[in-house]
Amino acid sequence: LLGGELTRDRKWPWQVSVHYSGFHVCGGSILNAYWVLTAAHCFARGKKLQTFDMYVGITNLEVANRHTQWLEINQVIIHPTFEMFHPVGGDVALVQLKSPIVFSDFVLPICLPPSNLNLHNMSCWTTGWGMISPQGETGKELLEAQLPLIPKFQCQLLYGLTSYLLPEMLCAADIKNMKNVCEGDSGGPLVCKLNETWLQIGIVSWGRGCAQPLYPGVFANVSYFLSWIRYYMETVPNPPQILPSLSSSLRNNLSTLLTIMGSLLVL
């Protein structure tokens, strides 16, 4: 984040750090115990799923605490329109975890917005561990920035004819105070508060550099992908869990029962 400020733990408990080969590459957000929402372009072709790691309950990338959880990816579902109508269109991915996240004050899910949310005059924030300068410096601490939403028409004017915006995209940046998302923030959440509850309205997707002339950050508009997100979260079964070792008494009872059943079948 350019112009971001240090945050405190527990303030953004849904933040996820996506690591590849041991390095932070993208942000993400917790939707529920098994599902993380992030950007499709974080999983560029050719990258092996086994080489990714997910971390929750973390604010300093170099300091794990007792709330930090390391989770493995079970599968990644990329939106079917990814790169179809735009070089970074449909930039949404759902990551299913192999084991469930354990929630605490430091690890909580973010809410999905209603489909008809009026974004006018909402106060929105984004968080991430992305670059903190146009020269590419990165920080280890999670940063936060309040980013006003920029009307689509104005955003398209700022981008001129070089980059077109799809209806499923939204723009946010604090041009006056030079606050913007940057490389490494991709996949992270743009959240707005409504009636004391935070809703995720955007996923950090693309932009042009992250400094002067300041081109606003472009986000995937979560409302456009709601039915797709809900469909997969509701239909894909949770991955099989490695059963904890059965207690000996339970194992004995089980074997006795199976023996009886076996002998009954023989009779």
């Binding site: 303030k11 529920n32 390391w70 084991s99 354990v102 929630f103 004050d105 909580l108 899910p109 809410c111």
Partner: peptide
């Protein structure tokens, strides 16, 4: 970072935890 062990499944999350409501509200 401790790798999650199956024993943790015992306290695996309740699915009804409230979303979007951090304990620590920004001041």
């Amino acid at each position: 970072v401790s790798r999650r062990h199956p024993k943790d499944q015992a306290n695996s999350p309740s699915s009804d935890v409230a979303c979007g409501q951090p304990v620590l509200q920004g001041k």
